[in-house]
């Protein structure tokens, strides 16, 4: 009988530490499948961040460098520049990427570093016990917003996929979810698209994946999944925010700077 389903070889044969109903495991799997399909596992260097995603090396069967909180895009920059033949991805949560690491993600993206960033947005700091994140919804109660996030005091949740799409160095930016089979299939497709940009050496690609955190949200896994399909997707719409293969620049790209040993920047490296 033909085998129709198996563990991706890029994923280790171990149970994860993730809570019941958490979607990190699903997202890990999709990333590993994409790695298998592009055949890049043997030249992949993952950059782990701080938070629930810190055990990247425990689940992915690839070489891994651990970065300080928020700094994964800078670490990945160093890795990729030193080893341009490697496939480099970061896997970061919302506190890591959208709060403490905002400078690093924006500038790595703006430089058009040839890396892929997987950004898991579950609207909370899961590992530290459910504190308010930059993506926490207005009104959402967390352990540090016991009355609910107050827009007047705490600002609004940050939409990273849209924000990064504005930057000249970003080749691909999309938001996905894995709450339904249809969304999951689409998430896989977009992760493949993001990987393709790096495999072809065409610049920075970004995936924002909405994810559940039933433990911190204080709900059942099913309720958590429903929240994704309702409140979260309404505020964080799914879709592709930039895909330079389908995109025509408004102004002509400037001529490349003449210098010794120049890096070949993809043509899209210009302002929107």
């Amino acid at each position: 009988m033909p085998q129709v389903f198996k563990r991706p070889v890029s994923l280790k044969d171990v149970p994860t530490h993730f809570c019941p109903g958490c979607q990190h495991g699903t997202i890990h799997r999709l990333v590993a499948e994409a790695m298998d399909e592009f055949g890049v596992r043997e030249r992949t260097i993952g950059v782990a961040s701080v938070g629930c995603s810190v055990f990247l090396y425990g689940y992915f069967d690839v070489d891994v460098v651990e970065a300080p909180h928020g700094r994964a895009p800078a670490v990945a920059t160093g890795v990729k520049r030193a080893r341009p033949d490697s496939f480099v991805f970061t896997y970061q949560g919302d506190g890591d990427l959208a709060a403490i690491g905002t400078a690093e993600i924006i500038h790595a993206a703006n430089r058009g570093e040839d890396i892929t960033v997987i950004f898991v947005n579950n609207t909370t700091y899961g590992m530290t016990g459910g504190q308010m994140a930059p993506t926490t919804m207005v009104g959402q109660k967390t352990s540090t917003s016991p009355y609910g996030r107050d827009r007047a005091k705490d600002g609004s949740p940050i939409r990273m996929a849209e924000l990064l799409a504005q930057l000249g160095g970003v080749a691909f930016s999309a938001r996905v979810a894995v709450n339904t089979p249809k969304n999951l299939m689409d998430a896989k497709k977009q992760i493949m698209n993001a990987f393709r940009y790096q495999v072809e050496g065409k610049g920075f690609s970004f995936i924002e994946a909405l994810s559940t955190c039933p433990t911190a949200w204080g709900v059942t896994p099913i309720q958590a999944n429903e929240r994704i399909g309702g409140e979260l997707i309404e505020y964080f719409p799914l879709g592709v925010y930039k895909d330079t293969a389908q995109w025509k620049p408004r102004i002509a790209p400037p001529a490349p700077v003449e210098q010794p040993g120049a890096r070949a920047f993809p043509e899209f490296m210009n302002e929107i």
Binding site: I45, V47, V65, A67, P68, R71, A74, V75, A76, T77, G78, V79, K80, R81, A82, R83, S86, A103, E104, I106, H107, R111, G261
Partner: peptide, 24 residues
């Protein structure tokens, strides 16, 4: 010399780029 020079976004960015490059 086919090397890489990056003017980083901050000293924090720079030291972490060093960390990443050195890890390779």
């Amino acid at each position: 010399l086919n090397g890489e020079f990056i003017q980083a976004e901050s000293e924090v960015g720079a030291i972490n780029m060093l960390l990443g490059a050195s890890a390779t």
